[in-house]
Simulated assay, not measured.
Amino acid sequence: MKLFDIIITLAHGLFRKENEDKDLFEVRTRKILLISNSIASTSTIINTAITRNPKNLDIGSLLNTITHLFTDLHFIAKIKQEFINNEISDRLKKEIDEIDLLYETI
């Protein structure tokens, strides 16, 4: 399963634009991996349920999905929080600069 994750990550990396924020692009890549791992795990569970053969259950895939779920969601939340804080800081700085400019002109 890790091999597929690496292939998906590399393939998605080919579409990154130079001016695009690296962290936000990594968030999108991790979301893609979460979706693909969830689909793979779900199909394994469905296959096991339909065939009623527990040997069809891919425990490694399930563990990989659960690991990605916890680590990636934490990373995504951290990056979103940083992005929001940076946006707020940038907007406040612009407003303060405008106020300073108005004050200097008075």
Rank of each mutant, 00 (worst) to 15 (best):
R91I: 05
K93L: 03
H68W: 11
T67D: 08
D90S: 10
K93F: 06
S89F: 00
E82S: 03
K78G: 07
L73M: 15
Q81V: 07
I76D: 02
D90A: 10
T48E: 09
T71R: 06
H74F: 15
I88L: 08
A77Y: 13
I84R: 05
N53K: 14
K80W: 07
P54A: 11
L63H: 07
K94P: 00
Q81P: 00
T51S: 09
N85P: 00
D90Y: 12
I79A: 01
K93G: 03
G60Y: 06
P54Y: 14
N56L: 13
L63D: 11
E82I: 06
S89Q: 03
I46R: 02
P54C: 13
I79P: 00
I50N: 04
T48C: 06
K94E: 05
N86G: 05
L92T: 06
N53E: 14
L57C: 09
E87A: 06
D90W: 10
D100W: 01
T67C: 02
F83Q: 15
S89N: 04
A49M: 11
L62T: 09
E95T: 02
I50S: 03
K80L: 11
K80V: 09
T48M: 07
E95N: 04
G60C: 10
I88Q: 10
I99C: 02
A49W: 09
R91A: 06
I84K: 05
L69C: 10
I45E: 03
I50L: 07
I84D: 04
F83V: 12
T48I: 03
R91Y: 14
N47K: 12
P54E: 15
T71P: 03
L62F: 12
I66H: 11
I45C: 02
L57E: 09
L63Q: 12
R91N: 07
H74V: 11
S61W: 06
T65R: 12
I96Y: 04
T48D: 02
F70G: 07
L63T: 13
S89A: 04
G60V: 11
F83P: 00
D90E: 13
T44G: 10
P54F: 12
T44H: 05
I45R: 01
N64R: 08
N86S: 08
N53W: 09
K80C: 09
S89M: 07
L73R: 12
D97A: 03
T48Q: 01
